[in-house]
Nucleic acid binder design. Structure first.
Lengths: 216, 216
DNA sequence: TAGATTGTTAATCGATTAACAATC
DNA sequence: TAGATTGTTAATCGATTAACAATC
């Protein structure tokens, strides 16, 4: 892991997929793999895979291929999966609950240390061993624990205000599930959006397209 | 809405965002908008927006801009949001429950008509007015109701088998939340993946990258 | 050594941006 | 008519693919 300079988002978004697939190979006990084999399984070109990996260094052996264990570990390190950045979750509705109990944060570079909601019906309950706190505790909590990342599982209307508040409290990284594009007002901010509605609409478009082509 | 021929995924993925933002303008009672104004709000170039829209037709008026209501409706129609494709959800765990109760399918081109799980503790319960059925009812149900799309909220291990079964039952469209890339074995299939782990890892990478640049 | 497969450079392809004529 | 803004063509930029020398 060396080079790394202005890697494009296209490359970055493929890394977790490589990682996931390599983990899978690892579990199957496979020791070595070539870029060609990988390309077939992943539906990419071998050339692209080699290009991608060489953004970070030469992990392969000429004439041999890549050692699964080693490559997997390298990509994990590139992604920073061992960092355990402290994260809090805002909004313990259905989606928030699903995220809190479903995601293995520790495998993905984070550590969930707090959950907040405003509803008295939710405050005090536990999710995945973490009790839901009153959103009014947010300030004190952040001052004490200094989380780096916030997961936003809140309605569109609340997202603008809450994200501002979180920024004031020192949070710079956001995993945003609200149907709202957090204004990228600040350059030291990273926002990763998961817009489920957009995803569903995209699927709808593609279905439509295919159905119409089918008619012709 | 006319042209439409081999639109690139880059364009398609921006459409929901346009739609979402136009809906928002509509609610605020804004009647007209120019590509330049849009570009500022969305963080894109005006040129790109005009290019994107002109894949489907000329919706603007020279010297004036776009009429919000009209453009919004056009994009809605392009996406096919009124289609109401029949969808079923497989897996009523935390995530499945969140999807079932959180998503407004009817606004996004679909209609949720069935939920399936294998756990006796879940079968019989209701989510959003739809009762959870035994997965063993799947075949009969599909033969009768002919759903077009399936939402996969199941573990990785189950995804391969279930997606095959669903294909056999005539389902061609998948919204896939399982940590598994459904093999695109068949050309008449559309798979929209939502890989939350990948998204989280990508965020981790970007945080890392920013933190390291900060140190320099 | 011969065969295989990487790392890397060069060529191609596609997507974004810029420019401007058309026109409301 | 003058000003504004689109639709569209041309130029640029970036990402993907192809090719091949390096080397295990």
């Amino acid at each position: 892991m060396a080079k790394r300079e202005n890697i494009s988002m296209s490359v970055i978004r493929r890394l977790p997929r490589y990682y996931r697939f390599l983990k899978h190979l690892q579990e199957k006990g496979i020791h070595r793999i070539s870029s060609t084999e990988l390309s077939v399984k992943l539906g990419l070109t071998a050339s692209q895979i080699r290009q991608d990996l060489n953004c970070f260094g030469g992990f392969g052996q000429q004439g041999y291929g890549y050692i699964v264990d080693q490559l997997c570990e390298e990509i994990g390190a590139i992604l920073g999966l061992e960092k355990g950045y402290k994260a809090i979750l805002i909004g313990a509705g259905n989606l928030g609950q699903a995220i809190a109990s479903h995601m293995k944060f520790q495998n993905n570079g984070f550590q969930l240390i707090g959950i907040f909601d405003s509803s008295p019906f939710k405050i005090g309950n536990s999710l995945n061993g973490i009790s839901i706190q009153d959103i009014r505790q947010l300030e004190t909590f952040c001052q004490q624990k200094q989380p780096a990342m916030a997961i936003l599982c809140i309605p569109r209307e609340a997202a603008g205000e809450i994200s501002n508040q979180l920024y004031e409290l020192g949070i710079r990284y956001f995993w945003n599930f609200s149907h709202y594009d957090i204004a990228v007002k600040y350059p030291d901010t990273v926002v990763e959006n998961v817009h489920l509605n957009d995803s569903l609409m995209t699927l709808c478009y593609r279905i439509n397209d295919l159905e119409e082509k089918g008619k012709e």
